[in-house]
Amino acid sequence: MTRAKVLLIGLIVLALGGVGYLGFEALGVRGFSAGIAAQSLLVLIVVVWTGSYLFRVVTGQMTYMNQRRRYREVYDAKEREDLEARFDALPEEEQQALLQRLGLDGDDVRADS
């Protein structure tokens, strides 16, 4: 999140406090009671917002984590394709020698693909 967005969110929360105060006064709540009600509403909003953030952290549903997960899936698929292409480009004897060094036979490798 950029600094501009953080400042904008701060201004929105500040404006919500003022609108809440005016709203409670319009509903007939006067003076300190309207201020306390507006502050209580803002505290509730901040607690719910923070709780949703913590829930996303605990469940691993953060934007950065999702981006990393998607990137890793694409990277692994590309890397596998590249390795398979390099393996297929090897002569048959080198393929067999490599598979023997790895303790595999040709049928195991082709079955996994």
Rank of each mutant, 00 (worst) to 15 (best):
K78M: 14
E79S: 14
L90C: 06
A37C: 02
G60S: 04
V43N: 06
L14T: 15
E25I: 02
R56S: 10
D112G: 09
Q39R: 12
M65T: 11
E25A: 08
D105Q: 06
K78W: 15
F24Y: 12
G28L: 02
G10I: 03
D108C: 02
I9H: 12
D112R: 13
T59A: 05
A77Y: 11
E94G: 04
R68D: 10
S52T: 11
L8A: 10
D107A: 11
S52L: 09
Q39G: 08
L83Q: 14
L41C: 00
I12L: 12
R101F: 09
L7N: 06
R101H: 09
Q100Y: 08
L22Y: 09
I12S: 14
T59C: 07
V46F: 03
I36F: 05
A34V: 00
E84F: 11
L16Y: 03
E25T: 14
T59Y: 06
S40F: 06
I9P: 02
Y71S: 05
Q39C: 14
V48A: 02
A38R: 00
R30C: 05
N66G: 13
L104K: 11
I12E: 14
A77K: 10
R30P: 03
Q67D: 08
V13I: 13
A111M: 09
D112L: 10
D107T: 10
V74E: 11
L22G: 13
E92Y: 13
Q95K: 09
R68V: 15
L42V: 00
V57G: 04
A89Y: 09
M62I: 14
L102N: 05
E79A: 13
E93F: 15
R69I: 11
W49C: 06
V46L: 05
I9W: 12
K5D: 11
V48C: 03
K78V: 15
N66I: 15
S33G: 12
L14N: 13
G23M: 04
E92C: 02
Y21Q: 06
D112W: 11
R56K: 12
I45S: 01
E73N: 14
E81P: 01
L14E: 15
A26H: 13
L54S: 03
L102W: 07
V29R: 00
D108G: 05
R30L: 04
L14I: 11
A89G: 12
P91S: 08
S40D: 10
Q39P: 03
T2H: 02
F24P: 00
Q100V: 13
E84N: 09
T59R: 12
A38I: 00
E81T: 14
L16I: 07
D108T: 10
L14K: 07
E81R: 13
E92V: 15
A37F: 01
R56G: 02
L99S: 02
Y21G: 01
G31F: 04
E93I: 07
Y75E: 15
G20D: 04
S52R: 14
S40M: 07
T63L: 09
E79K: 15
R3Y: 11
